[in-house]
Design a binder for these strands. Structure first.
Length: 939
RNA sequence: AGGCGCGUAGCUCAGUGGGAGAGCGCUUCCUUGACGCGGAAGAGGUCAGGGGUUCAAUCCCCCUCGCGCCUACCA
C-alpha cells in the first residue's frame, strides 16, 4: 500500500490494468471449471467499421453483466468476434481497386478474394479491438470471424442439411437488386426513403385513334416493359374499355386493358400501367392475369435490348429523360405533377433499388419461423423489455422466404454444383441451357468477337471448361438445371462422372452465417467441450435494429440445428441518438466518437454514463455534460479514498462482522445498513437489466450518504477520538469503501482496480473478489440517524436562510419532545457541533426559547438558534411566514381528505392512519411557528 | 394507413394509484485539515391538453395535439 496521488488520471491506469488483466488470463473462460457456466456471445460487429456509440453502449452493458457474473462466482465466457459483412467489405476493396484503375473482373475472383483477406488482415476488425479501450472482459483467446475455417464449416453443414431436407430452393422472381453493388438484397436490406418525385400523366392511344386512356406513373421509363393497363372493374370511366387493346407508345406493342380490383380509382387517373418485370405489385397482378413479363432494365441499371434501339444502353435516369422528351414530342405527355413517394435504397450504398427478375436461392422459412415464434410464446426465450414481443410476432407472421444468394465474391460461396454434361428430365442437355456472359468480349480465331453464349456453344467453338468459368461475369443457370450439394467440394458429377462441373458463383448473405453465431463460435458442428458447457448461451445484448435481421434468424437456426434456443434472454437496448434525438450518422455530421469521450473523460466515466442512460424502452440522447458529471463522481470517489488511506495506520485485522453492535457508533451502523440496502438494490437491478437504476443507487450512496454524511461524521473521531474509536471507524471506512469498489467494478473497472490495490491487503485483482451479496442491516440505526440529520439540517437551514457566514460560530438549543432524540442527539453532540460549526449546543427536554432565536421545527424536536444582535427580525418573520403558509396549505389538503367520508370508508387503514398522524404533526408545527412569529413581533 | 413509444424543473432524464425526484445549469454564501471535478442553503413543475374510472390520477381507460420509430402502401 502506498498513497493515492492527488488527482486521478485515467490515461495512466487504463492501459496498465487492461494488459494486467489480459496477461493474467482473467478474461479466459475455463472448460474444466466446476463453477456454473455463463455465456454471452457478442453481436459481431462489421469487420469494416469502426467503433461508434451504439457499439460502446452495447459492449458496456455486456461487460457489466460479464464482470458482475464473474464476481458472482460464474465461469463466464464473453465470446468476441466480427462478421465479414460481404457487401460492405467488398465495396471497400472495390473502391481501393478503382483508385488503381482496376476492377474485380480485371483481376479475377481468386486474386480479388486474396486482396480482401489482405485488407481484412491489415485494417479489418478495428472495432472489436477498440473494445479494449472500453475495458471489455472478452475472452480474446476465443475470438471468431464468420469466414474463418470453423465457421465456414458450420455454414457448409447447415446449407447442405437444409438443402437435403428440401428447405432450400431456387426460384425466378422479382427481387430487390442493387445496380451498384450488383447483387440481390433481401427485403430487410432495402431502406425506404421519402423522395420528392413527379407523377407523369401519359396518354395511351386506344384503337379509336382520337381517344386515349391516361395512365399515371412515377417511372415513365418502365413503360417500355408494360404488358397491360389495369383499371378497377367498377370504375365507370373505364369499364367499357376493359378487354380493349391500346397502342403502347414508343414501342410497337399492343397491350390489353384489364380489370383489377386492387387498382385504386382515386389515385392518379385510376388507370395503372402494369410492368411486371420491374414492380412488385405489378408482378402480382401479372400472375393473377397470366400476363407476360418483359424485362427492360439490366443488372447494371441500363436499359437492355427489350427497351428498343432508341433506349438500349441508357441508364434508368437518362432513359426517363428521353422517354419524357419523346412523349412530349408526340403530344402524349399530358401533365407532370409533383409527387412525393418512398423509394427503396440499398442499405449499404444508398443506390436506388431496381426490382428485377432473377433466379435466386431461398430458404423456405415457415416451418423454421413457427418454431421460433413458439420459443418466445412459451417463454423459452424472454425478450426484455417485453414490449418487443408484439413486434417480433408481427414480423414473424408476415415473414417471407429468405433470399440468401448474393452476386458478390466475398463470402461463403454456395456449395452447389451443376453438371453441363447431364441431361434434364425433358432430355435437353443442361449445357445448352447454361448461359455465360463474359467480362470482355472474346476475339475468336476468325476475328469474330462474342460476348456470351451457352456452355455447349462455347465448348463447341473450342473453349476450355476452366477458361469459360474464369471469363464469365455472369453465369445464368436456369431453374430446371439440377443442383448438386454436398459438404465436401464436389470433384465430379455423381451421375455422369464428368469433372467439368460448374460451381454456383454466388455467395451467401452474411446474415446466413451470423444466424449460426451462438453455436458455430462454440465449435459446432464438432461436439466440443465449449459447446456442451456454454450452449445455450444465457443472454444476448443487442439493439432493436437487428431484431429481425439477426436475432430472429439465430433463434430459427439454433432451434433447428441445436434443438435448443440459442439464448434464454434477449436484452434489447436503446439506440444512441444525438441531443436532438436524431440518429447519429456520418452524413449528418452529428457523430460523437466514443474514443474521443474516453480520451477526454476516461473509460470509466464514459461507461458509467452509458449505463446511467440505459433506461429500458427509451432511446438514449447522449449528453456530453453528463459524462463530465460522472467524471466528477470518479473524482469524488478518488478523494474519499485518499481521505481514508490517510488513516490507514488505524486499520486492524478485525473483520467488520467481528464488531459487536455497541462497539460501532450510530453512524457506522447507519452506513453499514445503507450499504446493505444498496447492495441489495444493485444486485436486483443488474439481474433485471435495469442498469440505470443500479448505477444511480450506487451514485446516490457514494456521494450523498457515504461522502456527505458518513465521512463527515467520522472526522471528529479521527481528529479527537481514542485509539479504539478510531480503529472501529477506520475499519468501517475501509470496509465500506471496499464494498463500494466491488459494487462499482462492473461499471468502472479501471478506477476501482486502481484504488483496490491501495485499500485492500490483497495483491491480486478486484476482478477475482466476490461481488457483495447480503450483509447485516441496522434498522434502528437508520431511524435514529434521522434525528441527527434533522438536527444538523435544521441548524444549517437557519444559517443559510438568514445568511449567517459559515465562519461565524453560533450556539444552538434543541428541545426534544421524546426520549429517543434526547439520547441520540446527546450521544452525538460533538458531531452535530462539528457539522454545524456551533461552539455550544444544549439538548434537553425542558429548554425554553430565548426571544432572539431563530427556530426550526422538526420531528420530535424544536431547534432554537439564539442570535442576539445577529438576528434580522424582519427576515426571520418573513421566512417563518413563508413556512407557515406551506404548513397551512398542507393542513387544509389533508383535512379535506379526512373530512371525506368516502375516503374514510374506502381507503386502506394504513393510509388513513398516515394522514391522521400527518395532520397532528402539522397542526403542532404550525402552532409553534405561529408562537414564534408572535414573540418576534414583540421585539 | 396500421402498430409501438414518448411528451415530468431551463436542459438531459428517472419514477409511482395516496401532493413528485436525480444530474447538469441557475441564485446566495464559503480558501471549514479528502475533494472548488468541492461544501452549505435556495429558486424553479396546474407531471402536453380535454374527458372518464376511483374515496384518491402525473400514474389506469378514452379522445385531441405535438414528436420519434417500426411495418406496409404510394401507379
Amino acid at each position: 500500500m502506498g498513497s493515492l496521488k492527488k488527482v486521478f488520471n485515467p490515461h495512466e491506469v487504463e492501459e496498465k490494468w487492461y494488459s494486467f488483466w489480459q496477461e493474467s488470463n482473467f478474461f479466459t473462460a475455463h472448460t474444466d471449471s466446476e463453477q456454473p457456466s455463463f455465456c454471452i456471445v457478442i453481436p459481431p460487429p462489421n469487420v469494416t467499421g469502426s467503433l461508434h456509440m451504439g457499439h460502446a453502449l452495447n459492449a458496456t452493458l455486456q461487460d457489466i453483466i460479464t464482470r458482475w457474473k464473474k464476481m458472482s462466482g460464474f465461469n463466464v465466457l464473453w465470446l468476441p468476434g466480427t462478421d465479414h459483412a460481404g457487401i460492405a467489405t467488398q465495396n471497400v476493396v472495390e473502391k481501393e481497386l478503382s483508385k488503381e484503375g482496376l476492377d474485380r473482373y480485371k483481376i479475377g475472383r481468386d486474386e480479388f478474394i486474396k486482396r480482401v483477406w489482405k485488407w481484412k488482415d491489415l485494417y479489418g476488425g478495428k472495432i472489436i479491438h477498440q473494445l479494449k479501450k472500453l475495458g471489455c472482459a472478452c475472452d480474446w483467446s476465443r475470438e471468431r470471424f464468420t469466414l474463418d475455417e470453423g465457421l465456414s464449416k458450420a455454414v457448409r453443414e447447415v446449407f447442405v442439411r437444409l438443402f437435403e431436407e428440401g428447405l432450400l430452393y431456387r426460384d425466378n422472381r422479382l427481387i430487390n437488386w442493387c445496380p451498384r453493388c450488383h447483387t440481390a438484397l433481401s427485403e430487410l436490406e432495402v431502406e425506404y426513403e421519402e423522395i420528392e418525385g413527379s407523377l407523369y400523366l401519359i396518354k395511351y392511344p386506344l384503337k379509336d385513334k382520337d381517344k386515349y386512356i391516361i395512365v399515371a406513373t412515377t417511372r415513365p421509363e418502365t413503360m417500355l416493359g408494360d404488358t397491360a393497363v389495369a383499371v378497377h372493374p367498377d370504375d365507370n370511366r373505364y369499364s367499357h374499355l376493359i378487354g380493349q387493346l391500346v397502342q403502347l407508345p414508343l414501342t410497337n406493342r399492343k397491350i390489353k386493358i384489364i380489370a383489377e380490383p386492387s387498382v385504386d380509382p382515386a389515385f392518379g387517373t385510376g388507370a395503372l400501367k402494369v410492368t411486371p418485370a420491374h414492380d412488385f405489385n405489378d408482378e402480382a397482378i401479372a400472375k393473377r392475369h397470366g400476363l407476360p413479363s418483359i424485362s427492360v432494365i439490366a443488372e447494371d441499371g441500363r436499359m437492355n435490348d427489350n427497351a428498343g434501339e432508341d433506349y438500349k444502353g441508357l441508364n434508368r435516369y437518362e432513359c426517363r429523360k428521353k422517354v419524357v422528351a419523346d412523349l412530349t414530342k408526340l403530344g402524349l405527355l399530358l401533365d407532370v405533377k409533383k409527387h412525393s413517394h418512398s423509394v427503396g435504397h440499398c442499405y449499404r450504398c444508398k443506390t436506388v433499388i431496381e426490382p428485377i427478375l432473377s433466379i435466386q436461392w431461398y430458404v423456405s422459412i415457415n416451418s423454421l419461423a413457427s418454431e421460433a415464434v413458439k420459443a418466445v410464446k412459451e417463454g423459452d426465450i424472454r425478450l426484455i423489455p417485453e414490449i418487443w414481443n408484439n413486434n417480433y410476432f408481427a414480423w414473424m407472421k408476415d415473414i417471407r422466404d429468405w433470399c440468401i444468394s448474393r452476386q458478390i465474391w466475398w463470402g461463403h460461396q454456395i456449395p452447389v454444383w451443376y453438371c453441363p454434361e447431364c441431361r434434364m428430365p425433358d432430355g435437353k442437355s443442361q449445357g445448352d441451357m447454361i448461359e455465360h456472359i463474359f467480362y470482355v468480349p472474346l476475339t475468336l480465331k476468325d476475328n469474330e468477337s462474342i460476348s456470351s453464349g451457352t456452355y455447349s456453344q462455347l465448348i463447341s467453338i473450342g473453349m476450355e471448361h476452366n477458361d469459360i468459368i474464369k471469363k464469365s461475369k455472369i453465369i445464368r443457370i436456369p431453374k430446371d438445371v439440377i443442383p448438386l450439394s454436398q459438404k465436401h467440394d464436389l470433384q465430379e458429377c455423381p451421375s455422369c462422372g464428368s469433372r467439368n462441373i460448374i460451381r454456383d458463383p454466388d455467395v451467401l448473405d452474411t446474415w446466413f452465417s451470423s444466424a449460426l453465431w451462438p453455436f458455430s463460435t462454440l465449435g459446432w458442428p464438432d461436439k466440443t467441450d465449449d459447446l456442451r458447457k456454454f450452449y445455450p448461451t444465457n443472454v444476448l445484448v443487442t439493439g432493436f435494429d437487428i431484431l429481425f435481421f439477426w436475432v430472429a434468424r439465430m433463434i430459427m437456426m439454433g432451434l433447428k440445428f441445436m434443438k435448443d434456443v440459442p439464448f434464454k434472454d434477449v436484452y434489447i437496448h436503446a439506440l444512441v441518438r444525438d441531443l436532438k434525438g436524431h440518429k447519429m450518422s456520418k452524413s449528418k455530421g452529428n457523430v460523437i466518437d466514443p474514443l474521443v469521450m474516453i480520451d477526454q473523460y476516461g473509460a470509466d466515466a464514459f461507461r458509467f454514463c452509458l449505463a446511467a442512460f440505459a433506461a429500458q424502452g427509451r432511446d438514449v440522447r447522449f449528453s456530453e455534460k453528463r459524462v463530465e458529471g460522472y467524471r466528477h463522481f470518479i473524482n469524488k470517489l478518488w478523494n474519499a479514498s485518499r481521505f481514508i488511506v490517510e488513516y490507514s495506520e488505524f486499520k486492524t485485522d478485525r473483520m467488520i462482522s467481528e464488531y459487536s453492535d455497541n462497539e460501532l457508533d450510530l453512524f457506522s451502523k447507519w452506513i453499514l445498513s445503507r450499504l446493505a440496502a444498496t447492495i441489495k438494490e444493485v444486485n436486483r437491478d443488474i439481474e433485471a437489466y435495469r442498469f440505470n437504476d443500479a448505477a444511480s443507487s450506487i451514485y446516490q450512496f457514494v456521494w450523498h450518504e457515504f461522502c456527505d454524511w458518513y465521512i463527515e461524521t467520522t472526522k471528529h473521531v479521527l481528529y479527537k477520538g481514542s485509539k479504539k474509536d478510531k480503529e472501529a471507524v477506520v475499519d468501517c471506512l475501509y470496509y465500506t469503501v471496499k464494498n463500494i469498489l466491488l459494487l462499482l467494478h462492473p461499471f468502472m473497472p479501471f478506477v476501482t482496480e486502481d484504488i483496490w490495490h491501495e485499500v485492500s491487503d490483497s495483491n491480486s485483482s478486484i476482478m477475482l473478489e466476490p461481488y457483495p451479496l447480503k450483509i447485516k442491516s441496522y434498522p434502528q440505526a437508520e431511524s435514529e440517524m434521522n434525528y441527527f440529520i434533522d438536527a444538523v439540517s435544521g441548524i444549517r437551514h437557519i444559517r443559510g436562510e438568514l445568511n449567517i457566514s459559515p465562519s461565524a460560530e453560533i450556539k444552538a438549543n434543541i428541545k426534544t419532545l421524546s426520549s429517543r432524540p434526547l439520547r441520540v442527539l446527546n450521544d452525538n453532540l460533538h458531531a452535530i457541533m462539528k457539522l454545524t460549526r456551533c461552539n455550544d449546543i444544549k439538548i434537553a427536554d425542558d429548554i425554553s426559547r430565548s426571544e432572539d432565536s431563530a427556530i426550526s421545527i422538526k420531528n420530535e424536536m424544536e431547534i432554537y438558534v439564539p442570535l442576539g444582535g445577529l438576528l434580522d427580525v424582519k427576515s426571520e418573520i418573513n421566512r417563518l411566514s413563508k413556512e407557515i403558509a406551506k404548513v397551512e396549505s398542507e393542513i387544509s389538503f389533508v383535512n379535506k381528505k379526512l373530512m371525506n367520508e368516502d375516503f374514510l370508508k374506502n381507503a386502506p387503514t394504513d393510509i388513513i392512519e398516515k394522514e391522521r398522524g400527518k395532520i397532528d404533526l402539522l397542526i403542532e408545527k404550525g402552532k409553534k411557528i405561529q408562537e414564534s412569529i408572535q414573540i418576534l413581533k414583540t421585539i
